[in-house]
């Protein structure tokens, strides 16, 4: 990569890193190590595609899509036989409770949601992506995004009320 492109990449990633880390942290249900691994992999792939990515209409949306796909691929890899909460067999055995940030009621409530619902809420509310983009990123219909949103919100609401 040319030096000025590379500088551009580093500046972009440095500025966006906190938001990406936060999104991955919530997507992984409060597991900072897994979340950071997903971010590391995402920004590495972004480096490889920087020429194409930096020309995208909406670079933030492009990177959020990469993040969620990296999360889903990582899930799929460990999961298509080994699904669930705790997220993968490795996580279940290696760090049964300790990897999770239990201090936050919101994070604990998000953990209860199935991964796809969690992804919908993180994309829509943390990353502010519109419904049609969320649908495109997750490969589902806008109707599904809306119903997943309302279902996810009502579960969160009930969990946060109980905890308070």
């Amino acid at each position: 990569m040319r030096a000025d492109s590379e500088a551009e990449y580093v500046a972009y990633v440095t500025a966006r890193l906190p938001a990406l880390r936060r999104a991955a942290f919530l997507l992984c249900g409060g597991d900072v190590d897994r979340g950071d691994d997903i971010v590391q992999l995402t920004i590495t792939r972004l480096y490889q595609r920087w020429r194409q990515a930096s020309r995208a209409d909406n670079l933030d949306a492009y990177v959020h899509r990469m993040l969620v796909h990296t999360f889903a691929d990582e899930k799929r890899r460990a999961w298509s036989r080994v699904r669930l909460l705790p997220e993968s067999a490795a996580d279940a055995a290696i760090e049964p409770q300790t990897a999770v940030d239990d201090r936050s009621a919101l994070v604990a409530a998000l953990r209860i949601l199935p991964p796809r619902q969690r992804a919908v809420l993180v994309l829509r509310f943390l990353l502010d992506r519109p419904v049609e983009e969320v649908a495109e990123i997750l490969g589902c219909s806008e109707g599904t995004v809306k119903s997943q949103t309302s279902r996810g919100l009502s579960i969160l609401r009930s969990q946060l009320t109980v905890r308070n």
Binding site: R22, D36, R103
Partner: peptide, 24 residues
Amino acid sequence: LHDLMTAVDLPPGRVDIGRAVADG
């Protein structure tokens, strides 16, 4: 919910941009 998510205490991390560049 956006505010709640933004307010979550994010533990320090180890994402390494230099390593991403080198690996990339």
